[in-house]
């Protein structure tokens, strides 16, 4: 059973009046993460929108000790901190429960620039949680193409739409044989909360990826952030799953799509709402390019369905 909205704790770790855009999905997700992690945590941020929305000195918008680090070093810095904390506890210089060390990185800091350090940290199985809030572009610097940008999407560096599909980062992390991997999105806060609580109580390296529909980058109306996130799940372009010790289980509503109980909605409606796909939809080869995107999604669903059957 997922936690209902009324059961979520009162604690607020994202403080009002931070510098994020109105309707920002990253702060929306971080609020829920804060409710699950509590105040005993250390936050590491690589350059991303979340660093820009921390606010100006001498004030800080997040109620955690926050460290701003270089773009490529999220994994290695978190490793260092978690090792240091363990040694401090061993020597008796740190009493009580160990703080949770977590990285809060964007998709650029995870898929592209931060991948090497993250992969190494996963291989060492260091005790931390790595959160990737995925807005499918480098939104902080004005929407450039990243490894998470889906096929056909407009960015300033792919003006005619990206020609390549995105990579499945959560699956790549699963193949590092780490204890816990999960995907979530802002439209299902109870699901996200449960996954973060589970990650917090699991020792070792944990990876959680959160789809964050950025209204500026994706070019839709500001109030529709949550609806867009819900549409992404219902159309099957984002699958909600978690893997404990390599065993994949799907969460609703993705579980229905995977089991074939409910058909995924056609991707057209999801694409039409977003301005970043409008150039693709206006062209003469629109039908073919939409079919390509639908093909990517169908392939991903079929692949994950078969991958989940491997439970060794």
């Amino acid at each position: 059973m997922t936690t209902s909205i009324k059961q979520l704790p009162d604690i607020e770790q994202v403080l009002s009046g931070n510098g994020a855009c109105g309707g920002c999905p990253a702060t929306m997700a971080l609020r829920i993460v804060g409710k699950a992690l509590g105040s005993n945590a250390i936050m590491l941020l690589t350059p991303s929108c979340s660093v820009a929305s921390m606010g100006m000195t001498p004030k800080l918008g997040y109620n955690w000790p926050c460290i701003n680090i270089c773009f490529a070093t999220a994994g290695s810095s978190a490793s260092g901190i978690s090792h240091a904390l363990e040694i401090m506890q061993e020597k008796g210089r740190l009493q009580g429960e160990l703080p949770t060390v977590f990285c809060w990185a964007g998709d650029g800091g995870t898929y592209d620039i931060g991948f090497q350090a993250l992969s190494a940290a996963a291989e060492r199985n260091d005790n931390m949680i790595f959160f990737c809030y995925n807005n499918e572009a480098y939104s902080n610097t004005g929407v450039q193409r990243s490894g998470a940008t889906p096929r056909g999407s407009f960015t300033t560096t792919t003006p005619t739409g990206k020609r390549q599909p995105k990579k499945n980062m959560a699956l790549l992390m699963l193949e590092h044989n780490i204890p816990y991997v999960a995907t979530a999105t802002v439209a299902y806060p109870g699901d996200l909360y449960d996954k973060v609580v589970k990650a917090k109580n699991t020792p070792g390296m944990k990876y959680i990826e959160i789809l964050a529909p950025c209204y500026l980058g994706w070019q839709f109306n500001m109030p529709e952030t949550v609806q867009m996130s819900r549409k992404a799940v219902r159309s099957g372009s984002w699958l909600l799953w978690e893997a404990e010790n390599g065993k994949i289980s799907f969460n609703n509503p993705s579980a229905h799509i995977i089991s074939g109980k409910k058909k995924a909605e056609p991707v057209d409606e999801y694409l039409m709402k977003q301005g970043r796909f409008s150039r693709l939809l206006k062209g003469s080869d629109a039908a073919q390019r939409i079919a390509e995107i639908q093909g990517d999604i169908d392939r991903e669903i079929a692949f994950m369905r078969e991958r989940a059957k491997i439970t060794i």
Partner: peptide
């Protein structure tokens, strides 16, 4: 000080 403290209104009166 060179460090920031958690506080409401870090981005001003938004």
């Amino acid at each position: 000080r060179p460090i920031s403290w958690p506080m409401k209104g870090a981005g001003g009166d938004t």
